[in-house]
Amino acid sequence: MVLLELEGVSKQFHARGGKGIVRAVSNVTLKINAGETVSLIGESGSGKSTLGRLVLRLLEPDEGAVRFDGVDLTQLSVKEMREMRSKLQVVFQEPFESLNPRMSIGDIVGEPLIIHDRGLNSDARKQRVRETLERVGLSPDSSTRLPGQLSGGQQQRVGIARAIITNPKLIVLDEPTSSLDLSVRAQILSLLADLQRELGLAYLFISHDISTVEYVSQRIAVMYLGEILETGPVSEVIKDPRHPYTRALLSSRLSTDPNESLPRLRLIGDIGSPTEVRAVGCVLAPRCPMAIDACRSQAIPLKEFAPNHEVACIRAEETSDALLSNSISGGGSN
């Protein structure tokens, strides 16, 4: 069952100083089923977080529809949207930055109930807070403490508790483990997996870490300069990436097996600027070692390569390490 459906979603920003337009998200179409984890992966500046915010309507899309449970969120009034938010929650990257340092843990975790469950009296609310804290692996006693008294991992558990207390169906997880230590990251990932199983949650998982994404998601969408270049089941996309960008991104992984060296593919130069006036063609063309004239003269939409596996590359069939390896070694930009 489709829970979230983005159709042709675009968002532009005016660059600082009024010069130029940043195309943060261009014409994105994406589906998330109930109980499923879909990951957005890409470098900084690819538009992953902007897309997450558009889903939550923390940003208004310029174009397109964001359908959640069959309702187009972009058409809702502020009041209707606020009610909807109990079903749509978010966990941010920096746990400490996203918690009010002067509020107690109990108040932080209980606050969504004040907004979304007004019938609840204060005792019942406290009870729900205690249950939720236990559910995320925190002692109920921690409700009297302040965020600054907790470790990074505990703070992130508070962020997760706040997100699940309203019984949401979808949580946008925006780099929830990027600022955490390895052992703590593993704890949080295990917690998220447990919660998904127990509560039937769907996750939109935003990350730049391929091994994390591979571990947590069923499907992934690879973003570059605001566009989805490849999307499909995680195992398929990682085993047989068809877009040169996906292949390059995957090849920058560092295996923790010292005897395994993954093939290296490099793109030319650095990530382009989203403010640049772009030609009609593929967004990756200026950096792509496989680019041909046709890549620069026409729009390249996502096309089905295999069932559920879509690629926005006219040479998807031919993509191979050999074709890509004649790339010029990466370096600075001009």
């Binding site: 052992s183 593993a186 994390t212 591979e214 571990y215 097996d257 005897n259």
Partner: peptide, 28 residues
Amino acid sequence: VFLNPAHPYTSALLGAIPRPGHELTRLL
């Protein structure tokens, strides 16, 4: 060290790397 870690802490760190199909080591 990576292929034959002898300290439980090293093993735990290596086990905390997410790999599909592998249970994550919970280093509490």
